[in-house]
Design a protein around this nucleic acid. Structure first.
Length: 419
DNA sequence: CACCGTCAAGTCGCA
DNA sequence: TGCGACTTGACGGTG
């Protein structure tokens, strides 16, 4: 049972995927980007190892224009060794990686050229995973595609086009229910027919259900039957609806109590859970800490060191409450800890609290800073207080000085990341 | 250097 | 028929 996150991590240095516009995609530019992105991938994997995260989705942006004629490089050969070295880390640490082509990869399109590009794109994704040397439990997740006014016909076209895929691609392919067209029973039918494993996505299922009566548990069990030994553990996608946003929009963070309700239904089954959430690795670590009922106090203390100024920024009361909770050192209060935290981070911005937190942070380099720098910070605070400026310019300034004076403790924290 | 329009892809709903 | 939404951060040009 692993919990993971998709594509990018907050607060991990040099881990972003870079790309360019088509018109700038020269060979040399592409090489630069690929080299940067492979370095980023390695940094993400190192972070996952350090954090005990065993499930990770690799961004499709790894190789810019990876399946397009725009990129004429034989990148999988040129960077074979680089791939292999990163792959070693992945395998040695039992990390399960996957990929998920975007909404524009449509294998069942009515347009033959679109289908050809989809096939190429799936080959691209497969090349990445093969380059890393991961086994067939390392999956490529795909949606069925369009309906074109005839779901049955379009589902059949998906099946036919699936058969056109090279064998190595097909062995990695898994399919997922989507939020508008193909619900979970549609996808299960296709999956069973083709012998392709099915990923259950809870949020898509709640927006686009196949039946009002059947429970999530029922569908997860149905999907379970589509996963065989060679496919590895069953995988599911879990996300929560962002309040006040379009149906299907992912929440900022995972509400830990809701997650645990969902999780308890899964029982002791070996299911890997991919979280789809804006705060990415932060929620993955949170859920991992909460699922482990007898975890280490130390891990909560590390978490607290990263979150504390973000909490203080919203609420002094919550800040003190968590301090007391951790001071007691009784049991393992992960759920209480994160519940207070989530609640506090959800508060509206409050200038008094925000300035208080900023002053705490400022305290770390107040003595080192020049008069001019101090003045800049105080000016920012003043402007913010007067409502002439937002909070971000002030925090940007504090971040700049944290970097300059190498305040690792601050730079490791989420204070500069969370809005 | 901050800001913001643009990019890249395919489908679908709506004028 | 054609346009905007969907999704997404980052690119890259402008002031």
């Amino acid at each position: 049972m692993s919990i993971g996150y998709a594509c990018l991590a907050l607060g991990v240095k040099d881990s972003s995927m870079k790309t360019c516009m088509k018109k700038n995609a020269s060979e040399s530019r592409l090489k630069e980007l690929i080299e940067n992105n492979l370095d980023s991938l390695e940094n993400l994997i190192d972070y996952n190892i350090k954090s005990g995260i065993k499930l990770f989705r690799i961004s499709s942006d790894l190789i810019p224009f990876g399946s397009s004629p725009v990129n004429g490089l034989q990148w999988w050969k040129i960077y074979a060794e680089r791939f292999s070295l990163i792959g070693n880390k992945i395998r040695e640490n039992n990390i399960r990686v996957s990929m998920h082509p975007g909404q524009y990869t449509v294998l069942n399109s009515q347009d033959e050229e679109v289908v050809e590009r989809a096939v190429e794109d799936l080959i691209y994704h497969c090349r990445v995973l093969e380059g890393l040397g991961t086994g067939n439990e390392s999956k490529i997740i795909l949606h069925i595609g369009g309906v074109y006014n005839d779901k049955k016909k379009s589902a059949n076209r998906f099946s036919e086009n699936c058969r056109r895929l090279p064998d190595n691609v097909r062995q990695r392919l898994v399919i997922e229910n989507d939020d508008r067209s193909y619900n979970i029973s549609d996808v299960l039918e296709i999956g069973k027919r083709l012998g392709i494993p099915v990923v259950f996505d809870n949020l898509h299922n709640s927006i686009n259900p196949s039946s009002a009566e059947k429970t999530e548990e029922f569908w997860i069990n149905e999907c379970r039957a589509t996963w065989s030994e060679k496919d590895g553990n069953q995988k599911i996608h879990y996300s929560q609806q962002a309040i006040d946003k379009r149906a299907g929009a992912h929440s900022e963070s995972i509400d830990v109590k809701c997650f645990l309700d969902f999780y308890s239904v899964l029982g002791k089954k070996d299911i890997d859970i991919m979280l789809e959430v804006k705060d990415k690795n932060l929620s993955a670590v949170k859920c991992m800490n909460c699922v482990n009922g007898s975890g280490k106090m130390k891990s909560l203390e590390i978490e607290w060191s990263k979150y504390k100024y973000s909490v203080l920024e919203k609420s002094l009361a919550a800040y003190n409450e968590i301090r007391e909770l951790l001071k007691e050192k009784r049991g393992y209060p992960a759920v209480s800890f994160y519940s207070i935290l989530e609640n506090a981070l959800g508060y509206a911005e409050n200038a008094g609290n925000a300035v208080n937190a900023a002053m705490h942070v400022f305290g770390y380099f107040k003595r080192d800073a020049s008069e001019k720098e101090k003045e800049r910070v105080l000016n920012r605070i003043d402007k913010y207080k007067k409502g002439e400026d937002g909070l971000q310019p002030l925090k940007k300034e504090l971040q700049r000085l944290s970097l300059k004076y190498e305040k690792e403790y601050l730079l490791e924290s989420y204070y500069f990341l969370l809005k």
